[in-house]
Write a protein that binds this DNA or RNA. Structure first.
Lengths: 158, 158
DNA sequence: GTCGCTGCAAAGTCTTTGCAGAGAG
DNA sequence: CTCTCTGCAAAGACTTTGCAGCGAC
């Protein structure tokens, strides 16, 4: 990718920081810090993919079979995290809603409409352009979300 | 907006053309042209919003109550149209899947989080940039959707 | 007339909720 | 101890499917 200032994002937030934020969030709302909630956050953090509630649940079951975490708890925790802007959800087609940690840096998504894979990128030129347009319209930009839909390299060659 | 090539989009495809394409599509696949299918296409065409199957069905029920179109037919027709790339489905956030005519694609939105106004625009420079990135990743771009959230001019001055 | 289409209702999926016992604070 | 959280199962929401009669061609 020679002339593009387009990058895969870095993990900009350490897990300890994330966990600490989560604990603060819970405390502020009179909620409890449970092993299930920690495991869900940790699994999201350690996954580089966008996870569906089901795939997240499967990962947790594999890694912590003795916990016997219920799918309902996964749904409940994801909703909690989403409300608090700690995770964001994306969804495409038949594959349902997918979640990722929102604390990771600002980025956009390519979504393959055939296999559902999501490729993340950050493009400084697009970000800059957005800022310019916002300024022209006298619009105070707070956040954005962008998805590009199409067919990925692998699916094209099939 | 002096130096920006940013424009409200046009309806680039006429309905008669669309309908004709649809009829050809049906004929080529040994399928039949029915009043329900026509009404679904027309309603999609006349709506400037992204419609859920349910909202599309409601619109049709309001406009053509005597047809008594079933929701199942709406789902079946949307699937058919999506498979044929005549409509695209997108979904973001907590809301479900939404459909729009593919021919109307490529547009972006500023959304004011205070008053809720939506300003729709197309920016050629961002489009160009997206094409470049897609090419780099060997990704066949079909559609995109972008939302910029913030506070509009009017709400800022209040 | 043939064969695909439609509405209906039933069946699948996916997600949320009620509940009683478990566990964090 | 208190009050939230959890797993379970049942309920709810959304989507698909089977079927018998209808309708495009």
């Amino acid at each position: 990718m020679p002339d593009l200032k387009t990058n895969f994002r870095d993990k900009t937030v350490e897990y300890t920081q994330l966990l600490s934020d989560f604990k603060i969030l819970l405390k502020e709302n009179g909620l409890k810090f449970t092993i299930q909630r920690e495991v869900i956050l940790e699994t999201l953090y350690n996954s580089n993919e966008h996870l569906t509630p089901e795939s997240l649940h499967n990962l947790i079951q594999e890694k912590f079979p003795n916990l016997n975490t219920g799918i309902a708890t996964v749904y409940r925790t994801l909703s909690l995290l989403e409300e608090s802007d700690m995770v964001t959800s994306l969804s495409f087609g038949a594959q349902g809603k997918k979640y990722e940690l929102g604390a990771k840096s600002h980025h956009d998504h390519f979504i393959c409409t055939v296999c559902g894979v999501i490729i993340e990128f950050v493009d400084e030129e697009i970000e800059e352009r957005q800022r310019k347009i916002a300024k022209e319209l006298d619009f105070e930009m707070r956040d954005h979300s962008m998805q590009i839909y199409g067919i990925c390299k692998n699916c094209k060659t099939k």
